[in-house]
Design a protein around this nucleic acid. Structure first.
Lengths: 161, 161
DNA sequence: ATAATTAAGGACAAAAATATCCTTAATTAT
DNA sequence: ATAATTAAGGATATTTTTGTCCTTAATTAT
């Protein structure tokens, strides 16, 4: 659906929103590790997020790093897509037609348009804050590390406890 | 949402389904022109569609070309995605997490999963034939050529008829 | 002031996606 | 049989995406 860059952007922003504040910034290395993304590439992405749209903020120097303002927390998730110049995917025709519209619909248009509306709604109505809160509840995850599950290995023939 | 290759594949298949039959095949040049795609690249895509999944069929030589069998018409649109090896996008986590699931959901999971289900339904329940019929009705389009609208240019000052 | 730390940004590298070209193979028409 | 037509497929080129590395700039701590 989205490019890797945008996936990293979404994960990074959510992570920052959950774990940072103006007086508790997160360094690049910490962020990249937390969201399981290549560090240098993530640096570029964070630059886009700080510049284009002010989704996240940054300061250099010791104790510097990335954080997100209270105001930016209220931004719709779509703002992240915009900063990554990838928000048109939401409106795009499934068949890639430039001219696809209500008056000149592609064969999938009428079926897809409802899905498209929900997608747009999701990204426009949910805020960055909202997603971060979902995480804070401790019910959602944001990395690719599979949880290590302890498995009790029993010797064949051993009595079950 | 999909790669260009897959967009072309969808458009090509629908066009072939609408305009071909076993005794009325379509040549590459005709197809590429109709769906507004680069000809040589489209050739590669048609190869994938004929080989991998037998979505479309082909014969070489004079009066040869591409067509689709009655059986293949009944295939779900998803078969096209499969032939292009791009069907996982339907199931993929929005944040690109490999481990995202019901038991370990990402922050967007619960919101997105309903949309995902509808997407999967669309591609699994609608057949190639169905989309082609939508076109045959003459209500949908499949190319990027904007309709030329005849505009009457009047000389300034000329009397309106 | 100086050194240490951290993001910003430029240059470059690698990989993947998109696209073209040319030769070969199959089929048909003559 | 031969020539003409059309898809198949290999090789290669171009562009975009993904990724790394190194230097510079800003900020802080000493």
């Amino acid at each position: 659906m989205f490019s890797k860059a945008t996936e990293y952007a979404l994960r990074a922003t959510i992570h920052i929103a959950k774990n940072s504040s103006e007086n508790n910034k997160l360094g690049l290395a910490v962020i990249a590790a937390a969201i399981d993304s290549p560090q240098s590439f993530t640096a570029k992405i964070l630059q886009l997020l700080t510049r284009n749209n002010k989704v996240i903020s940054s300061v250099r120097g010791p104790n510097g790093g990335f954080y997100i303002t209270k105001k930016a927390r209220k931004l719709p998730v779509r703002a992240i897509l915009e900063a990554m110049h990838e928000d048109k995917v939401l409106e795009k025709c499934v068949l890639g037609l430039a001219e696809c519209s209500e008056s000149q619909p592609c064969p999938m248009h009428s079926q897809y348009k409802q899905i498209k509306h929900q997608l747009i709604n999701l990204f426009e109505n949910k805020t960055i804050e909202y997603l971060a809160e979902e995480m804070t509840e401790g019910i959602t995850f944001i990395n690719n590390k599979s949880k290590k599950i302890k498995v009790k290995i029993e010797k064949p023939g051993a009595k079950k406890s």
